[in-house]
Every structure is written in structure tokens, then in C-alpha cells.
């Protein structure tokens, strides 16, 4: 694990304890700001074949960073919130792409068939589940957590970057699903009012 400790809480020393060098960003530019073009990708699907963002040109696309080893992801699927959001979005013509950027040496990593099977009991309704074990696509988007959501408009621009909703504990029945709100505004031809929120969950397990 590439983690650098900046400040020790126990002894309050200023000494830097470097456990390893930080991971380098994937080749390319900084992650896109809201309003900028979404980076293209070509990733292998757990069901076979390769999918790229260009395949969905002209459609609204939701990207969901996911890892079934993360309890926050598990909660969203077990409670049915994520499958329900996927189903609602797809019924509106949205393409919902789940991406797993867990590196192959991490204990949460699963081979494509096993990864697909991990979600089966939760009845997911995503359009496709893609493998990004080298993390290049995750880093290109700046995906930080699982889940971390991006909404891309029909012109290929990022219009939402952040959390799936505003309910970090999963106990608020009045929760607002930011992704569905953004999709509804896009379809209505309105600007996305809440375009950036803080994603919450486990860190993406990059290599």
C-alpha cells in the first residue's frame, strides 16, 4: 500500500514517516473539471468484449466506481438503492457503467467472472460492469471512493462528480439521489444544479 504519513497523532512529531512512494498519476492530464470533456476509455467487460465511452456517443452516461469488498457499496446494493437507481436511469435511456479499479494484488480483487457473481444476488441493473485493474481510467477521472459517481451528458462532458446521495449513514429516508437529480435535469434541458459533491465510501484500491 502506498501511503505517506504526514503527521503522527500519537507522538506529534514533525518527522515524516514515509511508508512508500506515492502512486504516480496515470499518463495524461488532470481529472476533468465539471464542464470538461470526459476522458475516453476502452475497458474489458466482465461479460466479455471491450467497451469504450465512444460507444455511447449521444447518450447520457453514468459512471459508477464500485468494489463489492467495500461495506458502503455493499449497503447500497443490499438495501436496493443502487439497483433501483440503475433501473430508474436506464428506463430514461441512460447508459449506466460500473467500473472496478481494484488492483489485482489487493484482497478485494476478483477475476471478471467472480466479480460479476459477487453482484448477482443484489440484482444489479447496470448496463455493464468493466474491469480497470491498472486503475488508469479511475485515475483519469479522479475517482477516489467506492462508490464515486460521474454523470456525462450527451455531448460527452462531465456534468456531475461526487456521491450517489447525501445519506452517508444510510438511515435518512429523505435522502436525495444526486445522480438521478442530475439525469432528470439533463433530460429536462436544465443545467445540473448540484454538480459536485464529496463522494463517500472506501478508497479506490489502486495499485
Amino acid at each position: 500500500m502506498n501511503r505517506t504519513r504526514i503527521f503522527g497523532a500519537l507522538f506529534f512529531t514533525l518527522a515524516l514517516v514515509v511508508t512508500a512512494s506515492p502512486a504516480a498519476r496515470a499518463a495524461g492530464e488532470d481529472p476533468p473539471a465539471v464542464g470538461a470533456a470526459a476522458p475516453d476509455f476502452a475497458l474489458k467487460c466482465t461479460g466479455g468484449g471491450t467497451h469504450s465511452l465512444a460507444d455511447y456517443k449521444g447518450k447520457i452516461v453514468v459512471l459508477e466506481w464500485t468494489n463489492p469488498g467495500c461495506p458502503v457499496v455493499v449497503r447500497h446494493y443490499k438495501d436496493g438503492l443502487m439497483p433501483a437507481a440503475q433501473k430508474a436511469a436506464k428506463e430514461k435511456g441512460v447508459v449506466w457503467v460500473a467500473v472496478n479499479s481494484t488492483n489485482a494484488s489487493h484482497k478485494d480483487y476478483k477475476e471478471p467472472a467472480a466479480l460479476r457473481a459477487a453482484y448477482a444476488d443484489w440484482k444489479p441493473a447496470y448496463s455493464t460492469l468493466l474491469m480497470d485493474a491498472d486503475g488508469k481510467t479511475g485515475k483519469a477521472y479522479g475517482a477516489k471512493t467506492t462508490p464515486h459517481m460521474f454523470v456525462i451528458d450527451a455531448e460527452g462532458k462531465v456534468v456531475y462528480n461526487g456521491a450517489i446521495d447525501n445519506d452517508t449513514s444510510g438511515k435518512n429516508p429523505e435522502r436525495i439521489n444526486h445522480v438521478l437529480a442530475a439525469v432528470d435535469e439533463l433530460i429536462a434541458g436544465k443545467p445540473v444544479s448540484v454538480s459536485t459533491t464529496k463522494p463517500y465510501g472506501c478508497s479506490v484500491k489502486y495499485e
Binding site: 501511503r3 505517506t4 504519513r5 504526514i6 497523532a9 506515492p22 502512486a23 498519476r25 477516489k144 478508497s203
Partner: peptide, 16 residues
């Protein structure tokens, strides 16, 4: 006061 950890581009504030 937490410890600050940097992991690639991610910053986290943690308690041991």
C-alpha cells in the same frame, strides 16, 4: 488531532 495520510492522490485523516 488525526494523522494525515497521503496515498497517491488521496488524503485521509485517521486515528490509530
Amino acid at each position: 488531532v488525526p494523522a494525515k495520510l497521503i496515498d497517491g492522490d488521496l488524503v485521509s485523516f485517521e486515528h490509530d
